[in-house]
Nucleic acid binder design. Structure first.
Lengths: 258, 258
DNA sequence: CCCTCTTTGCGTATGGCCTACGCAAATTAG
DNA sequence: CTAATTTGCGTAGGCCATACGCAAAGAGGG
Protein backbone atom coordinates (compact mmCIF):
# COMPACT_ATOMS: atom_id res chain seq x y z
CA UNK A 1 0.00 0.00 0.00
CA UNK A 2 1.74 3.20 -1.17
CA UNK A 3 2.18 5.90 1.44
CA UNK A 4 -0.20 8.32 -0.29
CA UNK A 5 -3.13 5.96 0.09
CA UNK A 6 -2.58 5.42 3.80
CA UNK A 7 -2.37 9.15 4.29
CA UNK A 8 -5.36 10.12 2.17
CA UNK A 9 -7.66 7.36 3.31
CA UNK A 10 -6.93 8.02 6.99
CA UNK A 11 -5.46 4.58 7.52
CA UNK A 12 -2.86 5.57 10.07
CA UNK A 13 -3.31 3.88 13.41
CA UNK A 14 -4.50 6.08 16.23
CA UNK A 15 -2.46 6.02 19.44
CA UNK A 16 -4.05 4.51 22.56
CA UNK A 17 -1.81 5.94 25.23
CA UNK A 18 -0.37 9.31 26.08
CA UNK A 19 -1.59 12.86 26.06
CA UNK A 20 -4.70 13.45 23.97
CA UNK A 21 -4.27 15.24 20.66
CA UNK A 22 -6.14 18.52 20.48
CA UNK A 23 -6.29 18.50 16.71
CA UNK A 24 -6.61 16.11 13.81
CA UNK A 25 -4.96 16.06 10.43
CA UNK A 26 -8.36 17.04 9.03
CA UNK A 27 -8.43 20.16 11.23
CA UNK A 28 -5.04 21.21 10.00
CA UNK A 29 -6.06 20.57 6.41
CA UNK A 30 -9.25 22.56 6.80
CA UNK A 31 -7.42 25.51 8.31
CA UNK A 32 -4.86 25.42 5.51
CA UNK A 33 -7.65 25.44 2.94
CA UNK A 34 -9.27 28.41 4.67
CA UNK A 35 -6.00 30.31 4.48
CA UNK A 36 -5.50 29.39 0.83
CA UNK A 37 -9.04 30.45 -0.05
CA UNK A 38 -8.66 33.78 1.70
CA UNK A 39 -5.11 34.73 0.84
CA UNK A 40 -3.81 32.34 -1.78
CA UNK A 41 -1.55 29.33 -1.65
CA UNK A 42 1.46 31.55 -1.12
CA UNK A 43 0.08 32.54 2.27
CA UNK A 44 -0.11 28.93 3.42
CA UNK A 45 2.87 28.50 5.71
CA UNK A 46 3.09 26.23 8.68
CA UNK A 47 3.28 29.27 10.92
CA UNK A 48 0.24 30.91 9.34
CA UNK A 49 -1.88 27.76 9.57
CA UNK A 50 -0.83 27.22 13.16
CA UNK A 51 -1.83 30.79 14.03
CA UNK A 52 -5.20 30.13 12.41
CA UNK A 53 -5.67 27.22 14.78
CA UNK A 54 -4.30 29.02 17.83
CA UNK A 55 -1.45 26.55 18.10
CA UNK A 56 2.27 26.89 17.78
CA UNK A 57 3.98 26.19 14.50
CA UNK A 58 5.68 23.01 15.57
CA UNK A 59 2.54 21.45 16.98
CA UNK A 60 1.33 20.88 13.42
CA UNK A 61 4.12 18.42 12.77
CA UNK A 62 2.43 15.97 15.10
CA UNK A 63 -0.41 15.68 12.58
CA UNK A 64 1.39 16.15 9.33
CA UNK A 65 4.87 14.93 8.56
CA UNK A 66 5.80 17.82 6.31
CA UNK A 67 4.30 20.67 4.40
CA UNK A 68 4.26 18.49 1.30
CA UNK A 69 2.04 16.05 3.10
CA UNK A 70 -0.27 18.89 4.05
CA UNK A 71 -0.51 19.93 0.41
CA UNK A 72 -1.33 16.36 -0.55
CA UNK A 73 -4.14 16.31 2.00
CA UNK A 74 -5.44 19.62 0.68
CA UNK A 75 -5.55 18.22 -2.84
CA UNK A 76 -8.20 15.75 -1.80
CA UNK A 77 -10.01 17.69 0.90
CA UNK A 78 -10.69 20.71 -1.32
CA UNK A 79 -12.83 18.68 -3.70
CA UNK A 80 -16.59 18.44 -3.34
CA UNK A 81 -18.57 15.54 -4.63
CA UNK A 82 -18.68 15.55 -8.41
CA UNK A 83 -22.02 16.60 -9.92
CA UNK A 84 -24.60 13.88 -10.47
CA UNK A 85 -25.13 12.87 -14.07
CA UNK A 86 -28.73 12.99 -15.27
CA UNK A 87 -29.96 9.54 -16.23
CA UNK A 88 -30.05 8.91 -19.94
CA UNK A 89 -27.70 11.74 -20.93
CA UNK A 90 -25.14 11.00 -23.61
CA UNK A 91 -21.42 10.83 -22.93
CA UNK A 92 -20.76 14.22 -24.35
CA UNK A 93 -23.26 16.06 -22.16
CA UNK A 94 -21.87 14.20 -19.17
CA UNK A 95 -18.27 15.14 -19.86
CA UNK A 96 -19.22 18.73 -20.49
CA UNK A 97 -21.10 18.85 -17.20
CA UNK A 98 -18.14 17.40 -15.34
CA UNK A 99 -15.68 19.74 -17.02
CA UNK A 100 -17.80 22.67 -15.90
CA UNK A 101 -17.88 21.12 -12.45
CA UNK A 102 -14.10 21.20 -12.41
CA UNK A 103 -14.22 24.86 -13.32
CA UNK A 104 -16.56 25.38 -10.37
CA UNK A 105 -14.04 23.77 -8.05
CA UNK A 106 -11.45 26.10 -9.45
CA UNK A 107 -13.69 29.09 -8.85
CA UNK A 108 -14.04 28.17 -5.21
CA UNK A 109 -10.38 27.22 -4.75
CA UNK A 110 -8.31 28.91 -7.44
CA UNK A 111 -5.13 27.71 -5.76
CA UNK A 112 -6.11 24.10 -6.38
CA UNK A 113 -4.33 23.80 -9.69
CA UNK A 114 -1.13 25.24 -8.27
CA UNK A 115 -0.69 22.10 -6.22
CA UNK A 116 1.84 19.78 -7.77
CA UNK A 117 0.46 16.49 -9.06
CA UNK A 118 2.77 13.98 -7.47
CA UNK A 119 1.27 10.80 -8.89
CA UNK A 120 -1.82 9.05 -10.21
CA UNK A 121 -5.04 9.83 -8.31
CA UNK A 122 -5.06 8.28 -4.84
CA UNK A 123 -7.41 10.19 -2.54
CA UNK A 124 -11.06 9.13 -2.23
CA UNK A 125 -12.44 12.36 -3.67
CA UNK A 126 -10.05 12.36 -6.58
CA UNK A 127 -10.92 8.77 -7.35
CA UNK A 128 -14.60 9.60 -7.14
CA UNK A 129 -14.20 12.29 -9.79
CA UNK A 130 -12.09 9.92 -11.85
CA UNK A 131 -14.85 7.32 -11.62
CA UNK A 132 -17.57 9.79 -12.48
CA UNK A 133 -15.79 10.95 -15.61
CA UNK A 134 -14.98 7.39 -16.65
CA UNK A 135 -18.63 6.44 -16.17
CA UNK A 136 -19.63 8.73 -19.03
CA UNK A 137 -17.60 6.58 -21.41
CA UNK A 138 -18.74 3.15 -20.29
CA UNK A 139 -21.27 2.67 -23.06
CA UNK A 140 -19.11 3.97 -25.86
CA UNK A 141 -17.09 1.94 -28.36
CA UNK A 142 -13.84 2.85 -26.55
CA UNK A 143 -12.03 0.04 -24.80
CA UNK A 144 -10.87 0.47 -21.21
CA UNK A 145 -7.42 1.74 -22.09
CA UNK A 146 -8.81 4.29 -24.49
CA UNK A 147 -11.34 5.47 -21.94
CA UNK A 148 -8.53 6.22 -19.53
CA UNK A 149 -6.61 7.93 -22.31
CA UNK A 150 -9.54 10.17 -23.20
CA UNK A 151 -10.09 11.07 -19.54
CA UNK A 152 -6.41 11.84 -19.04
CA UNK A 153 -6.48 14.04 -22.13
CA UNK A 154 -9.49 15.84 -20.73
CA UNK A 155 -7.87 16.32 -17.33
CA UNK A 156 -4.69 17.57 -18.91
CA UNK A 157 -6.58 20.11 -20.93
CA UNK A 158 -8.85 21.33 -18.13
CA UNK A 159 -5.98 21.40 -15.68
CA UNK A 160 -3.85 23.32 -18.15
CA UNK A 161 -6.65 25.76 -18.78
CA UNK A 162 -7.22 26.43 -15.09
CA UNK A 163 -3.55 26.90 -14.38
CA UNK A 164 -3.14 29.26 -17.23
CA UNK A 165 -6.09 31.25 -15.99
CA UNK A 166 -4.81 31.37 -12.43
CA UNK A 167 -1.50 32.68 -13.63
CA UNK A 168 -3.00 35.14 -16.05
CA UNK A 169 -5.30 36.40 -13.30
CA UNK A 170 -2.27 36.92 -11.07
CA UNK A 171 -0.42 38.64 -13.91
CA UNK A 172 -3.43 40.83 -14.55
CA UNK A 173 -3.67 41.81 -10.91
CA UNK A 174 -0.16 43.09 -10.65
CA UNK A 175 0.24 44.45 -14.16
CA UNK A 176 -3.05 45.15 -15.92
CA UNK A 177 -1.46 47.31 -18.59
CA UNK A 178 0.17 44.31 -20.24
CA UNK A 179 -3.33 43.09 -21.07
CA UNK A 180 -4.61 46.40 -22.36
CA UNK A 181 -4.37 48.34 -25.58
CA UNK A 182 -0.68 48.86 -24.94
CA UNK A 183 -0.18 45.20 -25.85
CA UNK A 184 -1.43 45.52 -29.41
CA UNK A 185 0.33 48.85 -29.75
CA UNK A 186 3.64 47.34 -28.67
CA UNK A 187 3.23 44.49 -31.15
CA UNK A 188 2.59 46.97 -33.96
CA UNK A 189 5.88 48.63 -33.07
CA UNK A 190 7.97 45.54 -32.62
CA UNK A 191 6.63 42.89 -34.98
CA UNK A 192 8.36 43.15 -38.32
CA UNK A 193 5.99 42.02 -41.10
CA UNK A 194 8.89 40.37 -42.90
CA UNK A 195 9.98 38.30 -39.91
CA UNK A 196 6.60 37.42 -38.44
CA UNK A 197 4.06 37.87 -41.21
CA UNK A 198 1.37 35.63 -39.74
CA UNK A 199 1.43 37.38 -36.39
CA UNK A 200 1.52 40.75 -38.07
CA UNK A 201 -1.61 39.87 -40.02
CA UNK A 202 -3.35 38.92 -36.77
CA UNK A 203 -2.30 42.17 -35.14
CA UNK A 204 -3.43 44.25 -38.11
CA UNK A 205 -6.77 42.47 -38.13
CA UNK A 206 -7.34 44.00 -34.70
CA UNK A 207 -7.55 40.76 -32.75
CA UNK A 208 -5.72 42.38 -29.82
CA UNK A 209 -7.48 45.73 -29.94
CA UNK A 210 -9.58 45.49 -26.82
CA UNK A 211 -9.52 47.44 -23.60
CA UNK A 212 -8.46 44.26 -21.91
CA UNK A 213 -7.46 40.83 -23.12
CA UNK A 214 -8.23 39.41 -19.70
CA UNK A 215 -11.99 39.02 -19.79
CA UNK A 216 -13.59 36.20 -17.80
CA UNK A 217 -16.63 35.62 -20.06
CA UNK A 218 -14.38 35.50 -23.11
CA UNK A 219 -12.15 33.00 -21.39
CA UNK A 220 -15.17 30.87 -20.51
CA UNK A 221 -16.32 30.94 -24.10
CA UNK A 222 -12.88 30.01 -25.37
CA UNK A 223 -12.73 27.16 -22.89
CA UNK A 224 -16.05 25.81 -24.11
CA UNK A 225 -14.97 26.07 -27.72
CA UNK A 226 -11.67 24.32 -27.21
CA UNK A 227 -13.30 21.61 -25.15
CA UNK A 228 -15.81 21.11 -27.95
CA UNK A 229 -13.04 20.77 -30.49
CA UNK A 230 -11.47 18.04 -28.40
CA UNK A 231 -14.79 16.28 -27.91
CA UNK A 232 -15.49 16.53 -31.64
CA UNK A 233 -12.26 14.64 -32.13
CA UNK A 234 -13.26 12.02 -29.61
CA UNK A 235 -16.65 11.65 -31.28
CA UNK A 236 -14.99 11.20 -34.66
CA UNK A 237 -12.74 8.55 -33.20
CA UNK A 238 -15.74 6.71 -31.76
CA UNK A 239 -17.46 6.87 -35.11
CA UNK A 240 -14.45 5.30 -36.78
CA UNK A 241 -14.41 2.52 -34.22
CA UNK A 242 -18.12 1.85 -34.65
CA UNK A 243 -17.71 1.73 -38.41
CA UNK A 244 -14.75 -0.62 -38.19
CA UNK A 245 -16.71 -2.91 -35.97
CA UNK A 246 -19.82 -2.98 -38.12
CA UNK A 247 -17.74 -3.70 -41.22
CA UNK A 248 -15.93 -6.29 -39.11
CA UNK A 249 -12.94 -6.33 -41.45
CA UNK A 250 -11.00 -7.43 -38.40
CA UNK A 251 -9.74 -5.73 -35.35
CA UNK A 252 -7.21 -3.09 -36.15
CA UNK A 253 -8.13 0.50 -35.46
CA UNK A 254 -7.86 2.96 -38.29
CA UNK A 255 -6.77 5.57 -35.83
CA UNK A 256 -3.98 7.51 -37.56
CA UNK A 257 -0.71 6.53 -35.94
CA UNK A 258 1.07 9.84 -36.40
CA UNK B 1 5.08 50.21 -24.03
CA UNK B 2 4.47 47.68 -21.23
CA UNK B 3 7.41 46.96 -18.96
CA UNK B 4 7.77 43.36 -20.12
CA UNK B 5 8.49 44.41 -23.68
CA UNK B 6 11.21 46.86 -22.69
CA UNK B 7 12.80 44.21 -20.55
CA UNK B 8 12.59 41.36 -23.04
CA UNK B 9 13.58 43.32 -26.10
CA UNK B 10 16.58 44.88 -24.38
CA UNK B 11 15.24 48.40 -24.73
CA UNK B 12 16.64 49.77 -21.51
CA UNK B 13 19.05 52.63 -22.04
CA UNK B 14 22.67 51.82 -21.37
CA UNK B 15 24.53 54.14 -18.99
CA UNK B 16 27.27 56.36 -20.44
CA UNK B 17 29.14 57.27 -17.31
CA UNK B 18 30.38 55.50 -14.22
CA UNK B 19 32.08 52.26 -13.46
CA UNK B 20 31.81 49.66 -16.19
CA UNK B 21 29.47 46.77 -15.62
CA UNK B 22 31.22 43.41 -15.56
CA UNK B 23 28.09 41.51 -16.52
CA UNK B 24 24.97 41.88 -18.60
CA UNK B 25 21.41 40.83 -17.96
CA UNK B 26 21.99 38.18 -20.62
CA UNK B 27 24.93 36.75 -18.67
CA UNK B 28 22.83 36.48 -15.54
CA UNK B 29 20.02 34.86 -17.50
CA UNK B 30 22.37 32.37 -19.10
CA UNK B 31 23.88 31.40 -15.77
CA UNK B 32 20.43 30.98 -14.27
CA UNK B 33 19.43 28.72 -17.16
CA UNK B 34 22.56 26.65 -16.66
CA UNK B 35 21.70 26.16 -13.01
CA UNK B 36 18.09 25.27 -13.82
CA UNK B 37 19.20 22.76 -16.48
CA UNK B 38 21.63 21.11 -14.12
CA UNK B 39 19.74 21.16 -10.83
CA UNK B 40 16.18 22.22 -11.51
CA UNK B 41 14.34 25.47 -11.08
CA UNK B 42 14.29 25.00 -7.33
CA UNK B 43 18.06 25.41 -7.26
CA UNK B 44 17.87 28.80 -8.96
CA UNK B 45 18.41 31.28 -6.18
CA UNK B 46 20.05 34.63 -6.48
CA UNK B 47 22.91 33.36 -4.34
CA UNK B 48 23.39 30.23 -6.44
CA UNK B 49 23.38 32.14 -9.72
CA UNK B 50 25.80 34.71 -8.34
CA UNK B 51 28.16 31.95 -7.22
CA UNK B 52 27.97 30.50 -10.73
CA UNK B 53 29.17 33.84 -12.07
CA UNK B 54 31.80 34.39 -9.38
CA UNK B 55 29.98 37.48 -8.13
CA UNK B 56 28.28 38.35 -4.91
CA UNK B 57 24.56 37.86 -4.51
CA UNK B 58 23.66 41.51 -4.42
CA UNK B 59 25.62 42.35 -7.54
CA UNK B 60 22.93 40.64 -9.62
CA UNK B 61 20.38 43.24 -8.63
CA UNK B 62 22.21 45.75 -10.79
CA UNK B 63 21.19 43.77 -13.85
CA UNK B 64 17.85 42.42 -12.81
CA UNK B 65 15.33 44.22 -10.64
CA UNK B 66 14.03 41.10 -8.92
CA UNK B 67 14.03 37.38 -9.19
CA UNK B 68 10.69 37.57 -10.98
CA UNK B 69 12.31 39.64 -13.66
CA UNK B 70 15.04 37.05 -13.98
CA UNK B 71 12.42 34.34 -14.45
CA UNK B 72 10.75 36.41 -17.14
CA UNK B 73 14.05 36.75 -18.95
CA UNK B 74 14.62 33.02 -18.69
CA UNK B 75 11.23 32.36 -20.24
CA UNK B 76 12.37 33.93 -23.48
CA UNK B 77 16.06 33.08 -23.46
CA UNK B 78 15.50 29.35 -23.00
CA UNK B 79 13.69 29.07 -26.33
CA UNK B 80 15.49 28.16 -29.53
CA UNK B 81 14.24 29.15 -32.93
CA UNK B 82 11.10 27.22 -33.80
CA UNK B 83 11.59 24.50 -36.42
CA UNK B 84 11.28 25.50 -40.06
CA UNK B 85 8.12 24.35 -41.78
CA UNK B 86 8.67 22.43 -45.02
CA UNK B 87 7.17 24.27 -47.98
CA UNK B 88 3.87 22.89 -49.16
CA UNK B 89 3.03 20.97 -46.02
CA UNK B 90 -0.54 21.11 -44.79
CA UNK B 91 -1.59 22.87 -41.60
CA UNK B 92 -1.88 19.67 -39.65
CA UNK B 93 1.61 18.44 -40.38
CA UNK B 94 2.92 21.88 -39.48
CA UNK B 95 1.16 22.03 -36.14
CA UNK B 96 2.26 18.52 -35.29
CA UNK B 97 5.85 19.40 -36.10
CA UNK B 98 5.69 22.50 -33.93
CA UNK B 99 4.05 20.65 -31.07
CA UNK B 100 6.89 18.14 -31.15
CA UNK B 101 9.28 21.07 -31.24
CA UNK B 102 7.76 22.32 -28.01
CA UNK B 103 8.31 18.90 -26.49
CA UNK B 104 11.94 19.15 -27.59
CA UNK B 105 12.29 22.45 -25.75
CA UNK B 106 10.82 20.78 -22.71
CA UNK B 107 13.30 17.92 -22.99
CA UNK B 108 16.17 20.34 -22.95
CA UNK B 109 14.69 22.57 -20.24
CA UNK B 110 12.15 20.60 -18.24
CA UNK B 111 11.81 23.47 -15.78
CA UNK B 112 10.49 25.72 -18.54
CA UNK B 113 6.85 24.94 -17.91
CA UNK B 114 7.19 25.61 -14.20
CA UNK B 115 7.67 29.27 -14.94
CA UNK B 116 4.51 31.24 -14.32
CA UNK B 117 2.89 32.75 -17.40
CA UNK B 118 2.41 36.33 -16.38
CA UNK B 119 0.76 37.65 -19.51
CA UNK B 120 0.34 37.32 -23.26
CA UNK B 121 3.54 36.52 -25.16
CA UNK B 122 5.93 39.45 -25.19
CA UNK B 123 9.49 38.28 -25.75
CA UNK B 124 10.93 38.00 -29.26
CA UNK B 125 11.41 34.25 -29.12
CA UNK B 126 7.95 33.63 -27.74
CA UNK B 127 6.45 35.82 -30.42
CA UNK B 128 8.44 33.98 -33.07
CA UNK B 129 6.96 30.68 -31.95
CA UNK B 130 3.53 32.28 -31.82
CA UNK B 131 3.98 33.51 -35.37
CA UNK B 132 5.24 30.18 -36.60
CA UNK B 133 2.27 28.32 -35.22
CA UNK B 134 -0.16 30.92 -36.55
CA UNK B 135 1.43 30.66 -39.96
CA UNK B 136 0.23 27.08 -40.28
CA UNK B 137 -3.36 28.31 -40.16
CA UNK B 138 -3.09 31.22 -42.58
CA UNK B 139 -4.54 29.36 -45.55
CA UNK B 140 -7.37 27.69 -43.68
CA UNK B 141 -11.02 28.78 -43.53
CA UNK B 142 -10.53 30.04 -39.95
CA UNK B 143 -10.78 33.77 -39.46
CA UNK B 144 -8.08 35.60 -37.49
CA UNK B 145 -9.83 35.35 -34.15
CA UNK B 146 -10.40 31.65 -34.58
CA UNK B 147 -6.80 31.11 -35.57
CA UNK B 148 -5.68 32.67 -32.31
CA UNK B 149 -8.24 30.58 -30.44
CA UNK B 150 -6.99 27.35 -31.97
CA UNK B 151 -3.38 28.26 -31.22
CA UNK B 152 -4.24 29.15 -27.63
CA UNK B 153 -6.04 25.85 -27.25
CA UNK B 154 -2.99 24.06 -28.59
CA UNK B 155 -0.65 25.92 -26.27
CA UNK B 156 -2.87 25.22 -23.30
CA UNK B 157 -2.92 21.56 -24.08
CA UNK B 158 0.79 21.19 -24.77
CA UNK B 159 1.69 23.32 -21.78
CA UNK B 160 -0.62 21.29 -19.57
CA UNK B 161 0.86 18.08 -20.86
CA UNK B 162 4.42 19.18 -20.22
CA UNK B 163 3.66 20.42 -16.74
CA UNK B 164 1.91 17.26 -15.82
CA UNK B 165 4.86 15.28 -17.07
CA UNK B 166 7.35 17.39 -15.17
CA UNK B 167 5.43 16.89 -11.98
CA UNK B 168 4.87 13.21 -12.55
CA UNK B 169 8.57 12.80 -13.27
CA UNK B 170 9.37 14.52 -9.98
CA UNK B 171 6.82 12.37 -8.18
CA UNK B 172 8.29 9.30 -9.78
CA UNK B 173 11.78 10.23 -8.70
CA UNK B 174 10.97 10.53 -5.05
CA UNK B 175 8.32 7.85 -4.79
CA UNK B 176 8.46 5.29 -7.61
CA UNK B 177 6.29 2.77 -5.77
CA UNK B 178 3.19 4.93 -6.22
CA UNK B 179 3.54 4.28 -9.97
CA UNK B 180 4.13 0.55 -9.69
CA UNK B 181 1.98 -2.52 -9.22
CA UNK B 182 1.16 -1.34 -5.71
CA UNK B 183 -1.07 1.29 -7.29
CA UNK B 184 -3.43 -1.15 -8.97
CA UNK B 185 -3.31 -3.37 -5.91
CA UNK B 186 -4.30 -0.51 -3.63
CA UNK B 187 -7.20 0.40 -5.92
CA UNK B 188 -8.42 -3.20 -5.85
CA UNK B 189 -8.48 -2.95 -2.07
CA UNK B 190 -10.05 0.46 -1.73
CA UNK B 191 -12.38 0.93 -4.67
CA UNK B 192 -15.83 -0.33 -3.80
CA UNK B 193 -17.57 -1.63 -6.95
CA UNK B 194 -20.86 -0.21 -5.70
CA UNK B 195 -19.52 3.30 -5.17
CA UNK B 196 -17.18 3.57 -8.14
CA UNK B 197 -18.28 0.98 -10.66
CA UNK B 198 -16.70 2.56 -13.71
CA UNK B 199 -13.31 2.86 -12.07
CA UNK B 200 -13.60 -0.64 -10.69
CA UNK B 201 -14.23 -1.98 -14.17
CA UNK B 202 -11.10 -0.21 -15.43
CA UNK B 203 -9.04 -1.62 -12.57
CA UNK B 204 -10.35 -5.13 -13.13
CA UNK B 205 -9.60 -4.87 -16.84
CA UNK B 206 -5.94 -4.58 -15.83
CA UNK B 207 -5.33 -1.09 -17.18
CA UNK B 208 -3.07 -0.31 -14.22
CA UNK B 209 -1.29 -3.64 -14.08
CA UNK B 210 2.13 -2.63 -15.30
CA UNK B 211 5.48 -2.55 -13.58
CA UNK B 212 5.38 1.18 -13.88
CA UNK B 213 2.77 3.66 -15.01
CA UNK B 214 5.47 6.23 -15.63
CA UNK B 215 6.81 5.22 -19.01
CA UNK B 216 8.18 7.89 -21.31
CA UNK B 217 7.39 6.19 -24.65
CA UNK B 218 3.83 5.52 -23.47
CA UNK B 219 3.47 9.14 -22.45
CA UNK B 220 4.74 10.24 -25.86
CA UNK B 221 2.23 7.99 -27.59
CA UNK B 222 -0.61 9.30 -25.42
CA UNK B 223 0.44 12.84 -26.17
CA UNK B 224 0.34 12.19 -29.89
CA UNK B 225 -3.07 10.56 -29.64
CA UNK B 226 -4.62 13.34 -27.62
CA UNK B 227 -3.13 15.95 -29.91
CA UNK B 228 -4.62 14.11 -32.85
CA UNK B 229 -8.03 14.08 -31.25
CA UNK B 230 -7.86 17.83 -30.83
CA UNK B 231 -6.67 18.35 -34.39
CA UNK B 232 -9.44 16.05 -35.65
CA UNK B 233 -11.84 18.43 -33.95
CA UNK B 234 -10.19 21.42 -35.57
CA UNK B 235 -10.33 19.72 -38.96
CA UNK B 236 -14.02 18.98 -38.51
CA UNK B 237 -14.64 22.60 -37.62
CA UNK B 238 -12.80 23.75 -40.74
CA UNK B 239 -14.85 21.36 -42.83
CA UNK B 240 -18.05 22.83 -41.42
CA UNK B 241 -16.86 26.33 -42.22
CA UNK B 242 -15.93 25.38 -45.78
CA UNK B 243 -19.30 23.74 -46.31
CA UNK B 244 -21.17 26.75 -44.93
CA UNK B 245 -19.26 29.00 -47.23
CA UNK B 246 -19.79 26.93 -50.36
CA UNK B 247 -23.52 26.64 -49.65
CA UNK B 248 -23.42 30.38 -48.95
CA UNK B 249 -26.65 30.23 -46.98
CA UNK B 250 -25.30 33.27 -45.20
CA UNK B 251 -22.65 33.84 -42.66
CA UNK B 252 -23.42 32.28 -39.35
CA UNK B 253 -21.25 29.42 -38.19
CA UNK B 254 -22.92 26.17 -37.31
CA UNK B 255 -20.38 25.71 -34.57
CA UNK B 256 -22.33 24.30 -31.62
CA UNK B 257 -22.60 26.98 -28.95
CA UNK B 258 -22.63 24.66 -25.94
C1' DC C 1 45.63 66.49 -13.72
C1' DC C 2 41.79 66.90 -10.64
C1' DC C 3 37.17 67.28 -9.18
C1' DT C 4 32.62 65.77 -9.43
C1' DC C 5 29.10 62.86 -10.84
C1' DT C 6 27.47 58.44 -11.97
C1' DT C 7 27.34 53.67 -11.73
C1' DT C 8 28.81 49.24 -10.09
C1' DG C 9 30.25 45.78 -6.39
C1' DC C 10 28.92 44.02 -2.30
C1' DG C 11 28.69 43.54 3.14
C1' DT C 12 25.29 43.78 6.41
C1' DA C 13 20.89 43.14 8.11
C1' DT C 14 15.84 42.08 8.21
C1' DG C 15 12.20 39.18 7.95
C1' DG C 16 10.40 35.33 5.88
C1' DC C 17 10.40 30.10 5.27
C1' DC C 18 10.75 24.73 6.71
C1' DT C 19 11.94 21.67 10.07
C1' DA C 20 15.40 18.87 13.47
C1' DC C 21 15.79 18.38 18.18
C1' DG C 22 14.89 18.10 22.95
C1' DC C 23 12.29 18.80 26.95
C1' DA C 24 8.12 19.55 29.83
C1' DA C 25 3.32 18.51 30.39
C1' DA C 26 -0.44 15.42 29.97
C1' DT C 27 -2.47 10.99 29.81
C1' DT C 28 -2.89 6.07 30.12
C1' DA C 29 -1.57 1.01 31.36
C1' DG C 30 -0.35 -1.74 34.76
C1' DC D 1 1.93 5.33 42.10
C1' DT D 2 5.11 4.46 38.36
C1' DA D 3 6.62 3.89 33.81
C1' DA D 4 5.64 4.41 29.17
C1' DT D 5 3.94 7.07 25.72
C1' DT D 6 2.38 10.94 23.20
C1' DT D 7 1.53 15.79 22.58
C1' DG D 8 2.81 20.93 22.80
C1' DC D 9 6.16 23.88 21.68
C1' DG D 10 10.67 26.85 22.40
C1' DT D 11 14.95 27.18 20.32
C1' DA D 12 17.87 27.19 16.70
C1' DG D 13 19.92 26.37 12.07
C1' DG D 14 19.98 26.91 7.39
C1' DC D 15 17.85 28.31 3.48
C1' DC D 16 15.51 32.32 0.81
C1' DA D 17 14.70 37.48 -1.38
C1' DT D 18 15.97 41.90 -0.98
C1' DA D 19 16.45 47.04 1.26
C1' DC D 20 20.13 50.01 2.34
C1' DG D 21 24.42 52.28 2.43
C1' DC D 22 29.10 52.79 1.47
C1' DA D 23 33.44 52.10 -1.09
C1' DA D 24 35.57 51.57 -5.53
C1' DA D 25 35.84 52.48 -10.43
C1' DG D 26 35.31 55.04 -14.37
C1' DA D 27 33.80 59.32 -17.44
C1' DG D 28 33.41 64.35 -18.48
C1' DG D 29 34.58 69.08 -17.76
C1' DG D 30 37.71 72.37 -16.21
Amino acid sequence: MPADFALLWGLRDAPRRGRRPTLTAADVTKAAIAVADAEGLGAVSMARVAAELGNSTMALYRYVRSKDELLTLMSDAALDDPPELPAGGDWRAGITLLARGMLDVWNRHPWYVQLPVSGPPAGPRNLQWFDRILSTLTDTPLDEGEQVGVVMGLLTFVHGEMRLRSELAAGYRNNPESFGRAYGAALRHLVDPREMPALRRIVDAGVFDYDTLYDEPDLDADFTKTLDLYLDGVAAHMARLAQDRSQSTGGDSRYPSV
